[in-house]
Simulated scan of single mutants.
Amino acid sequence: MDTTPLTVDQIRQAPKALLHDHLDGGLRPATIVELAADQGYTALPSTDPAELGTWFAQSADSGSLERYLETFGHTVAVMQTREALERVAAECAEDLAADGVVYAEVRYAPELHVDGGLSLEEVIESVLEGFRRGQDRAAEQGNTIRVGTLLTAMRHAARSREIAELAVRYRDVGVVGFDIAGAEAGYPPTRHLDAFEFLQRENSHFTIHAGEAFGLPSIWEALQWCGADRLGHGVRLVDDIRGVDSNGSVDVSAAELGRLSSYVRDKRIPLEMCPSSNVQTGAASSIATHPIGLLRALRFRVTVNTDNRLQSQTTLSTEFAKLSEAFGYGWDDLQWFTVNAMKSAFLPFDERLALINGTIKPGYAQLKWAI
C-alpha cells in the first residue's frame, strides 16, 4: 500500500466540508491593508501585505489562547462598514471554494462589528449579502460552494440571548446556527444558559467552543447543562481517556474511556478539531501528537477544520496534508473526515445527504481511481 503523504495540490481537488472557520480570522492581508487605508485605521503593524501576513502568523504562534485572540483587534477594526463586511465575506467564499470546499459554515460575532454605527441586523445582512456575492463569483470561476453562517456571541459579554434571537430570526436566509467564543477560563458556557435554552425551545442548532484552552469541565457544561449539538475543538477530551502517554500515543485496544468521553463517542457528538490552531494556542504540542490521531483511531465523530486561516496561514487542504504526513492518512481517511463533517452540518438531513452522495463520495471515488 502506498503510504506517500498526499500533497496540498492533490487534496485541493477533493470536495471538502468545513464547520469551524472564523470570518474575522480569514481575511486576505492585502484586503486588511486596503480597508485600513479606506477607513483611516493607522494601527496596523505593517502596510506591506506580505509582512502583515507574517506578523499575524508569528503573533498568533504564542502558545496562549489569550495572546492568539489579541490579533483579532486589527481584523475586527477594519470590518465596521457594510462595504467591508460584504467584501470580506465574498472573498472568504471565493477563497474556500478555490480550495475545494463545497460546504462551509463560517462564524462571526455581530456584536464586534457595530463600532462604526451599524446595527446588529445590518451587520448580519451585510455578511449574508457578501456570501451570496462570493458564491456567485466562485461559480463563475467553476467552483461551487454553499456557505452557511453561525452567529457567535462573546462569552465575556452579555448579549448572547440577543444574538441567539437573531440566529433564529435569520435562519431561513443563510444563518444556520449559533456559537459562543472567546477566552474559556473564567467564562463557562453556563453564563449563557438562557440563550441555549431559548435555542432549544426554537428547535435551533448551536455549537460551543469548549475543551480548547480549558479542560473537561468546559466540555461537560457545554453538553450536559447547555445541550450543545457540536463541540468547538474538544481537544481536552483526551484527558478522559486512560492509557495515553506524554506524547499522546496509546495502544488503542487498551484505551479506557471515562464517562464523559464514552458519552461523547456513544452519542456521536461532533468534534470540530483545528490542528494548526490548537498547536499555536498550546492546546496541542504538535501536529504529530495532536489528539486527533487518537480520537480518529477510536472512531469519535472527528472533523477537520481551519479555525483562522490568516493567523494559522492555512487552508483546509493544508490541514489535511499535515495530517496525512503525520498519521499516514490517505483518501479513505480524508473522505471519512469529510463525510463526518457533512453528517454534522447544520443543514436539513436531505440536503446533507444530497451533498454526501451527489458530490463528496463521487469526488473522492474519482480521485482514488485516478491513482
Rank of each mutant, 00 (worst) to 15 (best):
I32R: 03
L353V: 11
R201L: 14
L260M: 13
A228W: 11
H290E: 05
P29A: 01
P15M: 09
R201E: 14
N143R: 15
F198M: 06
T318A: 09
W55G: 01
P291F: 00
L223E: 07
P270C: 10
A326R: 01
S204F: 14
F327A: 05
Q141N: 15
S276Q: 13
P275W: 00
R268F: 14
V235K: 02
Q13N: 13
A109K: 08
K16P: 04
G258T: 07
L65T: 00
N143P: 13
T4M: 13
E212S: 02
I208H: 03
H209K: 11
R299V: 07
G177R: 04
E256W: 09
V304D: 06
Y263G: 01
V252N: 06
A57M: 06
G142I: 10
Y364M: 00
T149R: 08
A158C: 08
R28Q: 06
G232V: 01
V168N: 05
G63L: 06
P5S: 06
M79P: 02
A157S: 09
L310G: 04
G63E: 06
N203W: 15
Y68A: 01
R12A: 12
R87E: 14
A37D: 10
L223K: 11
A57V: 08
Q200W: 14
H205Q: 12
A157P: 02
I145T: 05
L27Q: 05
A213L: 02
F196D: 02
D251P: 12
D61W: 08
V176P: 06
R146Y: 12
T144H: 13
S46P: 01
E202R: 12
D24C: 09
I241Y: 04
P217F: 06
I269A: 05
L151H: 00
A17T: 15
V304G: 11
E319F: 01
R296A: 12
M154F: 06
W336S: 12
P189Y: 03
L52F: 01
H233D: 04
T315W: 00
I356T: 10
F198H: 04
L298I: 04
